[in-house]
Each structure stands twice: as structure tokens, then as C-alpha cells.
Simulated scan of single mutants.
Amino acid sequence: MRVIGLAGWSGAGKTTLMARLIPELGRRGVAVSTIKHAHHRFDVDTPGKDSWVHREAGARQVLVASELRWALMTELRGAPEPGLRELLGQLSPVDLVVVEGFKRDRHPKIEIHRAANGKPWLHPEDPAIRAIASDVSPPSALPWAPLDEIATIADLVLRHAAGLEDW
């Protein structure tokens, strides 16, 4: 299983890019899973549903299954947030895991940058950034693709993804 991250400031277009990148990788025969970091309190459950009631009652894990999908929710209940490596260990094996967020971790990343955000570049301060996708030319010699060239970004993703043992 290989890993690549999409890292950038909020509003740079990471999620929009992810929605276009996953189908492109799928057309190339690459099985993809994703991990998304959230910086705020979030919920994937619906208040009032049985699984929500179980979780609110104090269950540490709630697994919901149907003929179409299953989902496992884990409440930390004061335990420390798990690291990226630990979270990767929770996934079933696939060809590629694309990580959105976790920009401070050491896994290989592609920086997503949008000039209109007015935010600074993450590279060169982050040596794990291997390439850049942006709406302007970057101030470095790293491989670069325009944000709207999904096939070129997919090439960068596949070229720079690495196995867990490599970072």
C-alpha cells in the first residue's frame, strides 16, 4: 500500500481536487482509499438514529452494517488522537491511500496552492512536499502541475506516492 498526501491551506481546493483525482486514478486501475483530517468537531452519524444513540450512551465503537456498506465509528473518550500511521493500519489494503490534511506529518505530499487565498507556500519549509499543484507557478524547482490538469496531477501522485517503510 502506497501513500501520498494532498496538503494545503483551507480553501486551496484539496477536496475539489480529490473529487476529480479519485475517478482518474480509478480509470487507470488504481484502487484508492482516502483519509481526511478534520480540525474541528465533526459527526458522521445522524442524531436520533440507533447508532447515534449507542454512541451517545457511551459505546467506544459502533459498527453499522447493511448489504451496501459498513462503517465503524470510534469515540476517543479522552484518549489521544491517533496518528496517521495508526489510522492507515485501520484500512483494508488498497493500491493507494490519498491523505487530505495531516500537513504537518512526514508522509510524502503534493502541495495544493491557490494564489487567491493569500496564504504562504508550505514548501520549502516542509521537506516532505515532493510536487506542487497550483494555479500559479511555484517559487521552487519541484515538479508542478496546474490545478485543472487532473491527468498530470495523477501522474505526480503515482510517481511520488511511497510505501510506509519509505517515510
Rank of each mutant, 00 (worst) to 15 (best):
V98F: 11
H107N: 13
G101K: 04
F102M: 09
G78C: 11
L91F: 09
P82E: 08
K103F: 02
E100A: 03
L88A: 02
Q90N: 02
G83H: 12
P80R: 10
F102R: 05
Q90P: 00
E100D: 05
R85L: 10
V94Q: 02
E86S: 13
D105M: 11
Q90V: 09
P80Y: 06
V94L: 06
E86I: 12
D95A: 01
V99S: 01
R104D: 12
E100T: 01
K109M: 15
Q90R: 14
V97G: 01
V97E: 02
P108C: 13
D95M: 00
V99Y: 08
Q90G: 05
E81A: 09
L84Y: 05
E81Y: 09
E100M: 02
G78V: 14
R106W: 08
R104K: 12
A79F: 08
D95H: 05
R104F: 05
R106H: 13
P82Y: 08
V97A: 01
R85W: 14
G83K: 15
E86V: 11
P80T: 04
P82H: 11
G78Q: 07
K103Q: 02
E100S: 04
F102V: 07
P93M: 07
E81P: 03
L87Y: 12
P80W: 07
Q90D: 03
L96M: 04
E81F: 07
L96T: 09
L84R: 05
L96F: 07
K109D: 09
H107Q: 15
L84T: 02
L96G: 06
L91P: 01
L91N: 06
L91Q: 06
E86T: 12
Q90I: 00
E100Q: 01
G101D: 07
S92E: 11
G101Q: 05
L96H: 11
R106T: 12
L91M: 04
V97Q: 02
E86R: 11
H107S: 11
R85D: 15
K103H: 00
L96Y: 06
L91C: 06
V99K: 10
V98A: 09
A79W: 06
P108M: 06
E100G: 06
D95G: 08
H107G: 07
L87Q: 14
R85A: 13
V99N: 03
E100P: 03
R104E: 15
V98W: 13
V94W: 04
